[in-house]
Design a protein around this nucleic acid. Structure first.
Lengths: 362, 362
DNA sequence: TTGAAAGCGGTACCAC
DNA sequence: GTGGTACCGCTTTCAA
């Protein structure tokens, strides 16, 4: 524990071990390994042999400290278990890997404290970008907090990317990758309306969540377009999970609410609604139609397969990474102010078997 | 670009900036921040103020280089999109966070090359442990490769953890967290057999995959126990996805194979099988029973809800992390050889609505 | 209690 | 083409 570290002592071998054993300088070893500098074939061979013998890998921390280092993206999710998020993460991860970037995943469990802690942790890691996934609750404090995140990261040479939520207000250095949530909902609701449905139970999601609000707005607009009154009591908010879907339908039925279709905020909510309808002896789509949103695999695994809105989650992930990678490359020039890039991808309705014209009223 | 770095210059503030601005030494700042050393109240206050003003966070790379640093677990998954894996990852992540550890997630996409690259990358990061998720293909080269991984990591003071696959042979420094795959399958098959089924279509999964093999063995044993012949042509291998489930059932039907139940290798495969059965005009469970394996949320979202084998994925993740954390704490003493800890968790059958006694033969 | 300075493992600039 | 060496930002003796 006191001798100068022996080659294969505790811990990993260092570049010095390699240099010594190969009878060359550390500088040379470094050159051989980074490969961005001319070295003699002989030297290279000698070094590589030792590297293999010692099973040496460079210390990423040291490398990063000294200047080089692999760019890293941090992905922050509420819950790694959500299929939609997983797909975004996959997209980010894939694109990152393609460029030789590393990716970290952290989960916040919907806890703002934890989110804060994670962002700081990522700042410490010196990540190239922090990607925040999922809808946001838009109270004032949130805007402030995010703006602060964005500026802190920006000051540290990093960058904040918001995926699947609306852009921050004002002149905040953050990139937003979003999809046309409202149009998707509009199209979905229109599909239902044009099939003849006039009484539909709407389950937009959590009341304060940006995505839920957008989906609700879209539906509302469609109703207006069709001149169909939008009944407030037919709108039931709640979490994006199947339990809520179940409970909401169960409750609506109990309340004696009349509806010929359910416009669910997500496929998972739709799955719950489907269960509840069946439990009540109703057939889908013969008695009641159902639509989802997201188009995760579940949508096509259910019976009937869900007519739903396709959201290009994986692509959003890819786009998000590309955006930060590009800006990093271009980054040499001083960034100009007003750096709130906003990319929005399209959605489209996927028609399957869960919608039918309403049964004729007896 | 030449002046000594100004406090709020490009890049993050350093500990020196803080020290300077607070009029104290870097050592003092370090002490205040790590909090593991007595400092005067006045000093602390002065330092903290500057830290806040500068929005300073310590550089994790530097810290880790210098000795300190947050332990990090790396989780390597084939596909982040699989629900089962996601739950394991969640377990690991949760337990890691609880201890203040960081977690990385990397995806291999089933590519051995990429797996190799990732393990090396993780070695470079100096992670405390690498957790490999999911079943393994057991060709000889695999054993060798894993053994090499294990030893490399071990030599670097890290540790390999295999989750959801059988332990490595021989004296390899790796921890395995597994579940009783075969017993689960045995129980599931027994459930079917005791309900009276005698002709069952078995879809174990990919032919070479350890989990599929174990599940097949379990089923086989159950058949033996019940004295029911196990028909090779009623066993159809294929990937763990719904498409395979669909195709396999479709094929079996086309082949004129007779079966009153489908024993699927995973819930997802079961979902595919269910679709195919329906497409063929068969009712589940009235005409044909189905069972799954994994008990992911999908199992209870389908209609009928799947009778399946519950695998404690999330707990496996927690257990895996606990194992490495414990061994790290205990790690002071030189590790003794034969370090192949093997933890195995239990499974159990969850009875829902997808199994019924076979319809009487006409 | 506080400060000075020696590393931690690499990279890259400057000589030779 | 190669070697020497001054940092990168932080932790941690060792003195004062």
């Amino acid at each position: 524990m006191s001798q100068r570290k022996a080659p294969a002592d505790a811990g990993r071998a260092t570049i010095r071990d390699v240099a010594e054993r190969a009878g060359v300088s550390v500088a040379s070893v470094s050159r051989v390994l980074s490969g961005n500098y001319p070295v003699s074939e002989d030297l290279r061979r000698r070094v590589m042999k030792v590297v293999r013998d010692l099973d040496y890998v460079t210390n990423a921390h040291a490398r990063s400290l000294a200047g080089g280092g692999t760019p890293t993206v941090a992905i922050l999710i509420n819950n790694i278990t959500g299929a939609a998020f997983a797909h975004v993460a996959k997209g980010v991860e894939g694109a990152a890997t393609l460029r030789g970037w590393l990716s970290l995943v952290g989960t916040t469990g919907d806890d703002p404290e934890r989110e804060l802690a994670l962002v700081n942790m990522m700042r410490q890691q010196g990540v190239a970008a922090v990607v925040l996934l999922g809808g946001a609750y838009d109270y004032e404090e949130y805007q402030l907090r995010m703006a602060r995140f964005a500026r802190s990261l920006d000051a540290a040479g990093s960058h904040l990317v918001l995926v699947g939520r609306p852009p921050l207000e004002g002149d905040v250095p953050a990139t937003t990758v979003d999809y046309d949530n409202e149009s998707g909902a509009y199209a979905m609701a229109s599909h239902l309306l044009s099939a003849g449905h006039r009484e539909v139970l709407v389950l937009p999601g959590p009341a304060g969540l940006s995505t839920a609000q957008a989906r609700l707005r879209g539906a509302q607009r469609a109703f207006e377009t069709y001149g169909v009154p939008f009944e407030p009591e037919a709108v039931r908010h709640g979490p994006y999970d199947d339990e809520h879907g179940y409970r909401a339908v169960e409750g609506a039925l109990r309340d004696g609410l009349r509806f010929t279709a359910v416009l669910a905020g997500t496929d998972v909510v739709a799955a719950g609604a489907l269960q509840a309808l069946r439990a009540a002896g109703l057939r889908v789509p013969e008695d009641v139609s159902i639509t989802g949103y997201d188009d995760i695999p579940l949508a096509s695994q259910l019976t009937p397969q869900l007519t739903t809105v396709h959201v290009p989650y994986e692509e959003m992930g890819r786009v998000a990474l590309r955006a930060v990678a590009d800006r990093r490359e271009a980054g040499a020039g001083r960034r100009k102010g007003g750096d709130g890039e906003h990319l929005v991808l399209g959605t489209h309705v996927v028609v399957r078997n869960s919608v039918r014209p309403p049964a004729r009223r007896d």
